[in-house]
Write a protein that binds this DNA or RNA. Structure first.
Lengths: 215, 215
DNA sequence: GCCTGTGAATCCATTCACAGCT
DNA sequence: AGCTGTGAATGGATTCACAGGC
């Protein structure tokens, strides 16, 4: 990293990831150039935001012209370190877990599931379409270099989420993506992203009612 | 709503939804009282944040004592309007879509899927375990009161996401939860929440590398 | 003229710190 | 003494507005 460390807003990183989606499409259809205005429109953000976000990492555009699609995308990939493969493990192979393990979009982006765990005895030993064999949650162990995983994904029910997180952490995992409806304790030195979509629904429901309520 | 309209931070709503999760558990195990400190710890937020968030909607606690679990939960349910049933439709019944339609947690919270759509001819006409029959995406029509739905959920591939959103909007839907890796155009008068988890992974990957890079 | 890059201004959100009630 | 409720202070993030280069 050649950046003057750490003054980068958290939200900037997520948006930079967001920008890469339309850029990929433009690259496919061989569009050469893109303006911050156009890119912003596609991502529902302000054009100045796009420019500022990118400016944290360098000067990727040309004044009066715009950004070169191919170059910008390649810069973004470098920033996000999405130019390499990341190994994931999943805890909980219900519908949601299977949906993720079999998601080709993730694989295309370099996120590869290399282990699957579950607490339900009926599921243990089963072979997933992707080739993984479901192991007992309790067998999550310190990851041995080769077969190790770097990111743990939790798709268990709320009752098992914390246990799964604890196991992952014991196994040396430093980043967890938690889809369960249970807020995992933020442990020292481990990143946790919670994606509780029932909260998103609550949010929508609230705003729906308040709009209707207002008029 | 008896609130002095609209000065409520967006993030407050999401956190209030968050608070309800541990409260539900406390209610089950018949804990009477809870302090902002304890609740905050369980949700990984600051205690003052909890108090301020709640204070936007009223004075639910007792000084020197704390909050009554049952009362607080009931107030939160009123705030979030989660004391009624919301009807949802889903577009895209792949793994992810099925995971949502069959998710009992959502049903428990009052979110009920009443229609399912897909663009894949092979899926159309199939009956889901929940009893819904998959209809063609193109048949999303203006919702007729009775069978209507209020929130549209998108779990199609990126290529179909915008079309699904457009159809939902034409059908009169005012709120959309989008899980596809395509950012749906924010349309006039319709709320859209995007939950692109591949972005969350990018975010984790970035932070993982920058931590390792630093030491 | 056009579009980027960025300090300055604004807006929003979080946290502090203490008054107020039990 | 204990814990809430909240103005004031702080800290971040977004947007403006214009200088700078094509």
């Amino acid at each position: 990293m050649t950046t003057k460390d750490s003054k980068i807003p958290g939200a900037t990183i997520e948006r930079i990831a967001l920008y890469s989606r339309p850029l990929e499409k433009f690259l496919e259809q061989e569009t050469e150039l893109i303006s911050s205005e156009r890119l912003a429109a596609l991502c529902n953000v302000n054009p100045a935001q796009v420019r500022k976000d990118l400016s944290y990492f360098g000067e990727f555009g040309v004044r009066g012209i715009g950004y070169n699609v191919r170059d910008l995308l390649s810069e973004i990939r470098k920033i996000l370190v999405s130019d390499r493969e990341w190994k994931l493990a999943i805890a909980g192979v219900g519908n949601m877990g299977k949906a993720l393990v079999e998601n080709v979009n993730l694989l295309k982006r370099g996120y590869k599931f290399v282990a699957a765990f579950d607490s339900n005895p009926e599921r243990i030993g089963k072979r997933l379409p992707s080739g993984l064999t479901v192991q007992p949650l309790t067998s999550i162990g310190p990851s041995k270099e080769e077969s190790g995983f770097e990111i743990g994904v939790i798709t268990t029910g709320p009752a098992y989420a914390q246990a799964a997180a604890d196991s992952f952490i014991r196994a040396g995992v430093r980043a967890i993506l938690n889809f369960s409806a249970f807020q995992v304790r933020q442990p020292e030195g481990c990143l946790v992203e919670n994606v509780d979509f029932s909260i998103k629904l609550d949010d929508l429901a609230y705003h729906l009612s308040s709009i209707r309520g207002k008029k």
